[in-house]
Nucleic acid binder design. Structure first.
Lengths: 342, 342
DNA sequence: ACAATTTTTGGAAGCGCTTCCACGCCACAT
DNA sequence: ATGTGGCGTGGAAGCGCTTCCAAAAATTGT
């Protein structure tokens, strides 16, 4: 008798009909105090819990739920900013939307979760942050009739996609450093993994960096490119390696603000001043970057969340009106960690 | 005919039985290629979407879902760290849990959302971050048989609660400054609002600050207490006011790292060095604080998320084993923004 | 006392799906 | 021809709830 109790069990236990139980559950009027008490007692005794599925089904009330799946809770500050955009947009809507968060621990796990989502029809729309879906996965979503939108994925592989132009942003960042007289610019980024399905963010930004160098006719120095795990610590380590170089760079372009912070910490730890000795450029413009005076590239994180959510809702409502899928161009925000050495 | 199509509509359109439609939906075997195609066509034509509620109900598969409700997406970095703890814990479990995020825009909105959650039995367990529930609200949750856990709420009012000892943390922080020779210590915090249901975090930390001062027999200076909105900007403003004082403090204790950053920015902007001229102490130990060298109080944010999730799961499983609800004591993490002026 | 309301009640029907059973059909062996 | 097995198929039953309706009980008025 450990099976989940239903209202029938409760009704029997309380010696009333199921209608009465339901009425108590819903705080409906027209229930005698005596019945209400008996039912409540039975509920407690049986540890009864209404099934939300059954409720949603019978009560015709369609509660919409959107999913957000990401692999990048490690770079969770930027994820949080995007999420904030999503929430903000959703809360402005008339209808209520539940936001279900899926956090994949690895690419394989992401695939697994995705399958589960499709199998259970768990969400009506899905936002995919920082995961590049294979063609098959995207097809599966389409077949399941689940609209989806990629955010910060490799534009090439995931469509539709809220595109941050990583290449252009990185090019601008590098060009900014060049305009400030820098000739020896290092790049700190993540490993270029997962290239099966298009470029990674790191690779895209790296390409933008290379483009800027080449456009200006500068030689490319392989020693100035340091790839590692994402995050503060790896960037810290990479920076130490850069400093140890016979000819150290005069500027370092980190592919994320978090990494830029790790970079700056390493520089200062070695007695180097930022920006007097070395300029540092980040990427993301997290809110903290404003606070730390980091020169960086603004890429409209919160807005990307908003736009993504807007797209999903429009699609769900079958609105034909177009939704703007492009974000404003990334732009360099000059602050105090870069210096003109021209 | 704009009503949501069901499998019956699809079956009719495709000229097959509902069983076949269901089989196609579930990628079941034993469906002729011909039928499969017809069904898929019909699905597309009708824009059919399976109802997740009906699915969950019929398929006996109980998918658990937990809710997290918060009001504090404004201080979302610390929220993100907690959430990370929750996710990490959940992903270690065998059973699958869906995490539904509720973000209240105001206290009233929180009350509204809470009602909706209860009404819809939307979640099996609820984590309440930074919102103090009234006795009635807690009672409603209990009646609805939804286990809940407060995180960083005023211990007094929300029970059970994963308690961060704000008073003690603030006392330690202040004592640390005192031990470093400071006698003129300012406090920057949030307004003490919402006291109907217990103390706010800001108030608790303020009290800890006062306790330290009094224990050491120092006079309390009302001018040194600046309360405002939460966040960087208000703290920035408060700091400017502190600096303008005839006798400015030698140390500033901000109730959060975010505010400490605003404070430091203001100091530097006025040509004051941290920590040479003024020491700054934060609270939270966000990950960024390590990066910015901020002396602060560590309060185990991620762990609080983990513990909260653990409690909910244990309760759901009716495990009798006790769950540890107490967090390690907060501890001062000395870094580079404070100086011994003894 | 009785009739006229009003409140309270039980339970059938139905929400949209999955699952299962029974049946038709065809290919193959006998 | 007759049997045998397996695939494909339709549709009834059932998941746990809400909602409705008609009927029973309680209340009011006369």
């Amino acid at each position: 008798m450990s099976a989940k109790p239903t209202i029938y069990d409760v009704a029997e236990e309380a010696g009333v009909g199921i209608g009465t139980v339901s009425r108590v559950l819903n705080n409906s009027t027209n229930v005698s105090e005596r019945s209400r008490l008996r039912v409540q007692q039975a509920i407690r005794k049986l540890g009864f819990k209404p099934s939300s599925a059954a409720r949603k089904l019978s009560r015709q009330t369609r509660i919409h739920n959107l999913g957000v799946i990401t692999q990048s809770f490690n770079s969770y500050y930027s994820f949080a900013e995007r999420l904030r955009g999503v929430q903000a947009f959703l809360s402005e809507q008339d209808e209520k939307y539940e936001l279900i968060l899926y956090n994949a621990s690895s690419r394989d796990n992401a695939a697994e979760q995705l399958k589960a989502i499709i199998r259970d029809a768990a969400v009506e729309g899905l936002m995919i942050i920082d995961i590049d879906l294979s063609a098959e996965e995207q097809k599966a979503l389409r077949q399941a009739n689940i609209p989806y939108i990629g955010v910060n994925n490799s534009t090439a592989s995931l469509s539709p996609n809220i595109g941050a132009d990583n290449h252009e942003g990185a090019r601008l960042a590098t060009q900014y450093l060049i305009d400030n007289g820098h000739r020896h610019i290092a790049y700190i980024g993540d490993f270029f993994v997962d290239e099966r399905f298009g470029f990674t963010t790191s690779h895209e930004r790296y390409n933008g960096y290379r483009t800027a160098l080449e456009t200006n006719g500068f030689a490319h120095n392989e020693d100035f490119v340091k790839l590692g795990e994402h995050g503060y610590d790896a960037a810290h380590q990479s920076t130490l390696e850069l400093i140890a170089l016979p000819h150290r760079p005069t500027a370092i372009f980190a592919m994320s603000d978090t990494q830029a912070l790790g970079c700056m910490a390493a520089l200062r730890q070695c007695g180097l001043d930022v920006p007097a000795d070395v300029s540092v450029m980040g990427y993301d413009d997290l809110e903290i970057s404003k606070h730390t005076g980091l020169t960086t590239v603004r890429q409209h994180l919160e807005l990307s969340g908003r736009r993504g959510a807007a797209y999903l809702l429009h699609t769900l409502k079958r609105t034909t009106s177009d939704v703007n899928l492009t974000l404003p161009q990334p732009v360099v925000i000059p602050r105090q960690t870069t210096r003109d050495i021209g």
